[in-house]
């Protein structure tokens, strides 16, 4: 595939973000799911939206996809309001859907040829659409199953087909809602490679949700944590970890008793520890906070309604 399309070119000449969300609100009856979500996704970025079940991740993505009408706030996706955007906008956006039994009698090849056809009208010399079906089948690892009935594919193969359908129009922006749910480790690894390839070679901007924090850490340039109806954290995995007070955990045993202490600066703490107790200290362990610790600390703090700096100590036991 051509690689001359740099990630800079896609955001428009002004460098405007591909996704821009300001004060997004969503209310279902009496329940406020989103109370004021703000974030941007820039051209070529891979951004991961994290959050507990029911936090509104799917709702947010569906609003950005133009599949759901918001209750309030400003949303721009590729320069347009998804609630009013037309078919030309639709051709530039890719959506990976979770299917389960559709097109059971079709084969992957036939389905990709049929669905890819809709993008032909939107092909430009700079960005030819759709992808060639054989290339796509190869890319998602479905070559051997290309002519089998879709109804006979395994869950993982079906998800790969979903991904292929989602990207067939060679989107500038791709939405993935829990793309690897139900994948085995190999399929997950392959999928991660595919995301890297799309992002690096094609300059595709990607917004995905996941529950798998290791996956988020591997894929995303930036993470957003959605809790309590708004974005409570925004940054790289490292930056997020730094935001949590006490980002390292020190464990030791003294006189047969276990101790755990969360601290921001482990080295001076351990030095003091030895100065105080010397040889009594055994089984010393220093562990930096993982993204998972950080995530759980942040979500726990914000869900309990408190608005203070999350601390590791609260979750270390």
């Amino acid at each position: 595939m051509s690689t001359e399309i740099g990630s800079q070119a896609l955001g428009g000449p002004t460098g405007e973000p591909v996704v821009s969300v300001r004060g997004l609100q969503m209310t279902y009856g009496p329940r406020d799911v989103l109370t004021g979500v703000d974030f941007d996704v820039h051209a070529g970025e891979v951004v991961c939206l994290l959050g507990p079940n029911g936090a509104g991740k799917t709702t947010t993505i569906e609003i950005l996809e133009g599949f759901r009408l918001r209750s309030g706030g400003e949303v721009r996706v590729l320069g347009e309001d998804p609630a009013q955007a037309g078919d030309a906008w639709r051709a530039r956006v890719g959506v990976v859907l979770q299917s389960w039994r559709d097109h059971a009698r079709w084969t992957p090849r036939r389905l990709l040829e049929q669905l890819g056809g809709y993008f032909v009208a939107y092909s430009t010399p700079e960005r030819t659409r759709p992808y060639e079906v054989d290339w796509l089948l190869d890319t998602v690892g479905l070559v051997e199953h290309a002519d089998r009935k879709i109804g006979q594919l395994s869950g993982g193969q079906r998800r790969r087909l979903d991904v292929a359908v989602g990207i067939i129009g060679r989107p500038e922006l791709l939405f993935l809602d829990e793309p690897t749910a139900g994948f085995d480790p190999q399929a997950r690894r392959d999928f991660h490679d595919l995301v890297h390839r799309l992002s690096d070679l094609e300059g595709t901007s990607i917004l995905l949700t996941t529950h798998d924090l290791a996956e988020a850490e591997r894929l995303a340039d930036r993470m957003l944590i959605l809790a309590d109806g708004h974005i409570v954290a925004n940054g790289s995995a490292e930056a997020l970890t730094r935001q949590v007070a006490g980002n390292a955990e020190v464990r030791w045993t003294r006189k047969g008793e276990r101790f755990v202490h969360a601290t921001e600066d482990a080295t001076p703490f351990v030095r003091r520890l030895f100065e105080q107790h010397g040889e009594e200290i055994e089984d010393l362990e220093v562990r930096r906070a993982s993204l998972e610790d950080t995530y759980i600390a942040m979500v726990a703090t914000f869900e309990s309604g408190a608005r203070r700096t999350p601390t590791l100590a609260e979750v270390s036991r």
Partner: peptide, 9 residues
């Protein structure tokens, strides 16, 4: 839904 995600789907 697949067709809704396509231009003129």
């Amino acid at each position: 839904l697949r067709h809704k995600a396509l231009p003129h789907g």
